[in-house]
Design a protein around this nucleic acid. Sequence first.
DNA 1: CGAGCGATTGAAAAGACTCAACCACCGTGG
DNA 2: CCACGGTGGTTGAGTCTTTTCAATCGCTCG
Lengths: 229, 229
Amino acid sequence: MMESNHKHVTCANCLSRRNSLFSELSEDDVHHLDHHKSCSFYKKGQGLFLEGSYPRGVFCLNEGKVKVYARGDEGKEQIIHIAGSGEIIGFRAMFSGDPYKVSATTLEDCNICFIGKEDFLNMLDSNLTLRNNVMRELSRELGERAVFITNLAQKSVRERLAFSLLILNNIYKDEMINLSREDMANFVGTATETLIRLLKDFKEEGLIEIHTRKVEVLDAHKLMNIAGK
Amino acid sequence: MMESNHKHVTCANCLSRRNSLFSELSEDDVHHLDHHKSCSFYKKGQGLFLEGSYPRGVFCLNEGKVKVYARGDEGKEQIIHIAGSGEIIGFRAMFSGDPYKVSATTLEDCNICFIGKEDFLNMLDSNLTLRNNVMRELSRELGERAVFITNLAQKSVRERLAFSLLILNNIYKDEMINLSREDMANFVGTATETLIRLLKDFKEEGLIEIHTRKVEVLDAHKLMNIAGK
DNA sequence: CGAGCGATTGAAAAGACTCAACCACCGTGG
DNA sequence: CCACGGTGGTTGAGTCTTTTCAATCGCTCG
């Protein structure tokens, strides 16, 4: 995982950048990026930004996982998104002028770069490709959330859990899903106890394996059937 | 309401444009827009576009209301958004290259202009302000949907209905809310019968008045208390 | 005036939540 | 090295909300 507590990553060599919004930058831009970013180590559970505060820049997740969530009335978290390596976090609020509508916190130790608002917006102005990528990404997420909303409104918890496990499995790629039960419940949108019971069901049906905290997907195909469309 | 079946609106004079994404266009751009748009009348219940199809341009809602919705597994609609005068509909899919993730259908007779994809994207390229407005709008909606998701996951149907009535009241401004029970239920994310029962409760509590199909908000303040944050 | 669709009501069942208790793992400090 | 405390995980029971299904009502349009 992550042992040292501050490795400076050069954007030019950054593996995470390959799949990111910054993947198609010119050499100059990469250079520029490199000189205007700062790079730091975040411990598990550390906050990047809080709902209600104003954005000062964007975060570029080099290594680790970050949850993006909103808080409901009673303070309960609803996880909207879980970000993995290469994702740029917090760029939405950059354009609206509004304060963040969501908060972001690391789920494990992370390496994260920061790019100031000015620098980011300047790059955007001068770089057509980047701009198009950002627009595409905003649009894609908007579509994704329409699906999220529909699932939440129409699917049972069992179906949503199956769906969520598949999403999480993609996010965690080769690793196993590694979330607290509470976080997983807050992602699915259910009570922790309900989540635990359903995980047990899935385990008994041979769909997943449970290694204490970690969850391993065994039968993605059957999960898909349960999840529906 | 709407009597004739095709009035061509000049963008320069279009009242709806005042609050729209196009509100800050130069005279030239307005002129350009005028020459590249087509303007038509849509009957109530007519579709603008369907989930899964590819976008050919954007719709500019001059007069009327349009529902934007996704379909769940069983074909049940989840209404994501209800658009009113001045809103541009379907521009998200314009950037992603993906097919529409949602469908759009008129809720009443409408006057709607259409701008081809090429024209729209060209304007965007050449117009910084427009581009910024679009980015801001995309971001704003993304934030809005985070709230939507959280409400759906954490609030009771009663709370969501109160919340929804307030939103609808803003959309319908001076008119009364005018939706079928089914559409309203699909907006709140509940069963039609549940919606009807709760509407009755609210009526008995003096929060709303029901005029057959139309719903009038009497006490927005109390609704806010019920809706929560 | 009648057909048909949307609205409404009632009753029963199911799904999910809450609360409370208990367990298990982990790191700390003695 | 082991006891301790604490956090996170698990289980059970009971309750409540919400859904479902079936039946009825009542506009509205032809």
